[in-house]
Design a protein around this nucleic acid. Structure first.
Lengths: 234, 234, 234, 234
DNA sequence: AATGAATGAGCCTTCATTCAT
DNA sequence: CATGAATGAAGGCTCATTCAT
């Protein structure tokens, strides 16, 4: 009796996954607003009504999709190669991991920033939203850990991680919407540049002793000058 | 005779503006996909059909909205204070101008990045899209000019401007969608930090002779704790 | 299991037929352009959306209507009595069959000649049009066969069949639009006259040997006054 | 004062004609159901409202269009060459005139058979319809006169004229709707054949004395046999 | 005579969702 | 579980016509 229930559950889960796969496909083809339950059902080999056996509503599908998306993101970042001796390399690898993930799966980025906009979530906003934020935070934590390992204090690591994520997201958004062609730039190249600056900047304190050292001053970096710790002017 | 025509034109323009206002409102409330001609008409005190006296289609409304949005953006940037002697201050002022504009008017940002998603403009996609990019580029040009004035070569100025815009957009997106609260950061503070880094980095070559200057050397860098623009947390 | 499916299919077919009936009625009352999905749905006891469970589009309804119309036409012609020994009588019976069909069902004639005007079938114009022509051709083939049996060669049989159909259609059109009352004639009588002429004309070669036969020679021809089928004025 | 009024009337008529021209064009391009007041107005250089200065309603425009169409038809037939000595040639010329007119102007045929169908004439049906029939009758009268001149009695002339018109209309309808391609025939050729038969048939009584004459018997006509007066079989 | 804004009714179609089976 | 018919609301848009100016 118990085994039976379990088997049933497994089956249900499998079918649910099937619907989710279909949803991902449709959503990838038609966009987040263009996707319809009908289409998802058809792609999944079901009739519309059947979908409601697995999901309460259309929004629930998206929530599940996002959930799973964040899981994949987390995995991608987690699997990125760690360099024990060089935390800056670790950072680069981890950051590039999430950047590549979203570059390859634009719809997942849409998903992540979606629920807020067009949907009228049915009572699940708040909890869901917090949960989502937590999941995203978790996924990106390896980057923060790397920053800590590089010597930044907690507050600064948080700050840099946030800025890094924002930077990448901004670049991806511009790329996906075609707004970056305006400047004829490559999102990926710009991201790598930002990363390079960040690691260099963050590495600086560790090499404080060689401040003003010619090797650093004389070597024109990407920007035509040494990347230097900044001073405030606000 | 002439005056009559003019008065009529004025009236027409006013009514068109009225529709546009209604559209902006509805769009602000319901999102870009949720906004409907019916709702816009109601808000404007019209029947749906009347809208078509002023706009050819729903997309035309958005196009007009975006057009006007970019105009306001351009104006905002153009009006930002210029410092003749300090191009870095000019850059900061100009960049902050567009950032503040989009921070204060989140829907305008949505608008700018919209066409990609749901809109199926009637045959004018390509031209429109190019025009949009040009308009945006024009609006941001003062930043690029400032970068040039700071001594960057053309390619670098373009690159930095792109990166700067992407950074700001990323921060704003996270803020608007609530994804930034996750890190308990302020988008504005982070933007200011990025700006400060940028101006310093870019200013470096020009002030090479004063490298090692106490103001710079003695001052603990961003990661040392002195720079804390993000303490301005809103 | 099987029976259940079958019953369901039967039900579906019945409902589809119901919609088609409603469509036929509405279309009969409002004309082909005046008929609306709303009206059809109302007449069928449905909401507009429900119609789309049975038909893909408005045009699909018309296509189905026409399909079925041609089927009925074909049946009507096929069922007309054949005279083994007298192909001319067969021709008369077959031709009268389609004429009567369209005389009794004016809207079916409209239907058959419709697609040209208002319809913008969804990409299937060409195929559909060819198919329609084929169906019509099939329905009328018994007439052509009779003409062949009467001794006409293939080309001539085709020609006469075309002319015959055109004649009848012209008469029916005038009758349906009230344009024939102008001449105070009966479409049916005129059709019978044409048929009589055709059979006689075509029979002539075959009966050449009995030329001058009293039945033929002594009888005053159509223009002499004997033939007065049009006195049957309706 | 009088001259002034007259001039004004002339102007009005001219402008009315202008609208009518536009209507004809639009209607020719978009078909009878696809034509809109808006489009007509635009083509005429007016705004929609202005149209109502010249015509009470959309239907009134069509009525005027048809009116004028019948006038042109009448002219076309009237101008066809008359053969004093050969009424059969006159008939052929006159009949070919209206056939050619409608072959060249398919929309005029639509017009003639339209009002009955889709429009809900506003109170003008009956009178208008009668008037239309009268106008059409008048236009075709030359054919009937020719038939009379050929020796047919009044009733027969009427009958033959009706049948002739129906035949031509049927052929044209099939041609316009593409239904004739099915038989790969030319409407014009078939019409000429019908005409030839008609003139020969009708000429027969006059040449009764030469019945069975070799010239006639030996000459295989279009149908592979002598065209002969028909006998009844109804 | 002409404008052109506005109406109101209508068009076809799509959709998320429900529910009897 | 799954079906698929059905709903009800909404979507963008078109049109003949009216009317103040």
């Amino acid at each position: 009796m118990h085994a039976k229930l379990q088997r049933r559950q497994t089956l249900t889960d499998a079918r649910r996954a099937l619907v989710l796969d279909a949803a991902r496909t449709v959503f990838g083809e038609a966009g987040i607003e263009g996707a319809s339950i009908r289409e998802i059902a058809k792609k999944a080999g079901y009739t519309p009504g059947a979908i409601y056996s697995y999901f309460e509503s259309k929004e629930a599908i998206y929530a599940a999709l996002l959930d799973e998306s964040l899981l994949r993101l987390q995995t991608a970042v987690a699997e990125a190669k760690v360099s024990r001796s060089r935390p800056d390399k670790t950072l680069a690898a981890k950051a590039q991991a999430w950047f590549d993930f979203y570059a390859a799966n634009p719809r997942d980025l849409d998903l992540g920033f979606y629920l807020v906009h067009g949907m009228r979530p049915r009572g699940l906003t708040s909890e869901l939203d917090h949960e989502l934020n937590d999941r995203l935070y978790d996924a990106l934590r390896p980057c923060e850990d790397a920053l800590l390992a590089m010597g930044l204090d907690a507050a600064l690591a948080l700050q840099e991680n946030t800025a890094l994520f924002a930077h990448g997201v901004g670049l991806l958004l511009m790329q996906h919407t075609g707004r970056i062609r305006m400047f004829k730039q490559s999102a990926d190249a710009l991201f790598k540049t930002y990363l390079a600056q960040l690691t260099q900047r963050s590495a600086a304190p560790a090499t404080k002793e060689d401040a003003g050292e010619p090797a650093s001053a004389g070597q024109p970096d990407l920007f035509g000058g040494t990347v230097r710790p900044n001073s405030t002017d606000t």
